[in-house]
Amino acid sequence: MNALYSLLAVLALVLAGFACGQGAPARMVLATFVPYAAFAALLIGFCWRVARWAFVPVPFHIPVTCGQQKSLVWIRFAKIDNPSTRWGVVSRMAAEILLFRSLFRNNRARLSGGRLILGESASLWLCSLAFHWTLLLIMLRHLRLFLEPVPAFVNALERLDGYFQIGVPPLYFSDVILVSAMTFLLFRRFRDPALRYLSLFSDYFALFLLLAIAVTGILMRYFTRVDILSVKQFALGLAAFRPGASQALSALFLCHLLLVCALAAYLPFSKLMHMSGVFLSPTRNLANNSRSQRHINPWNAPVKTHAYVEWEEEFRDKMQAAGIPLEIENETEDAGNARTN
């Protein structure tokens, strides 16, 4: 059900995009107003969400340790999986963010009959990694539309991406990988009953939306051959706050644009915020040094404890009988003298 609803929601967006392509006033709104509104929502929403997290204190020092601690000098410790310094934490986070270290742990790589077997769980790691990296690559490639002159690194990325020069225009590998990885992730959610049980509307929606963006983009590039010059003009105009909707922009492009805007506006309110959340995760971004450096809890509130003196008062007779030393030896003596501590 969740999957169906989210598919319908994305299809509705696609249709809305095409519909906008038909009438001039709608085109105007979509090309001038919507992108700004969406990116304003993205910017404000993103900052607001991150601020929400950042302003909540981290009262306790709770890293999850995944290797040997640093204790005695002759024991080798796990510098990355159980970092004891800031630099260790940086490498742990880098491994987490660039390589999905923890997800990798899930893998069971096994040698069976001389063949390396990667289980289904390995494909999760592999496809996630492929999906995220190609997504990044594609976003960077888009910079060529917004910047004039095009930065050298963007050109380099493009050349690399289309390295094998298959087809005209050259096929980007990132496109193929992105779509296949996402298809796998989606397929996985449908296939595994446990995941189907867990998946919410938003889980499918994010995937369908990204997939729709990718598909419309691919259609434009390889099939309908969008007029790249007018798109660039439009993008530069947007970037320079001089928006204009040229007649040369196709309905497909407007559809792509609407979907991207929808993603931008939706992102801050969704689980896609994991991209910034991961940096703040207290089980990963703290060094395991809570015994060598005191961690401060800003709201460390006083609590009711059972103080020693009260305790001794209660058990005085029994302690005396058992010969356990007392703080205040005898009631009749001057208690003030005995209480030297």
């Binding site: 069971r108 096994r110 289904e120 296939r191 009953p193 049980y197």
Partner: peptide, 16 residues
């Protein structure tokens, strides 16, 4: 429960 089938049937590592 159906949710557990993929694991119970599919996973071959006896410790997982």
């Amino acid at each position: 429960p159906a949710e557990a089938h993929a694991l119970l049937c599919g996973e071959t590592d006896p410790f997982r």
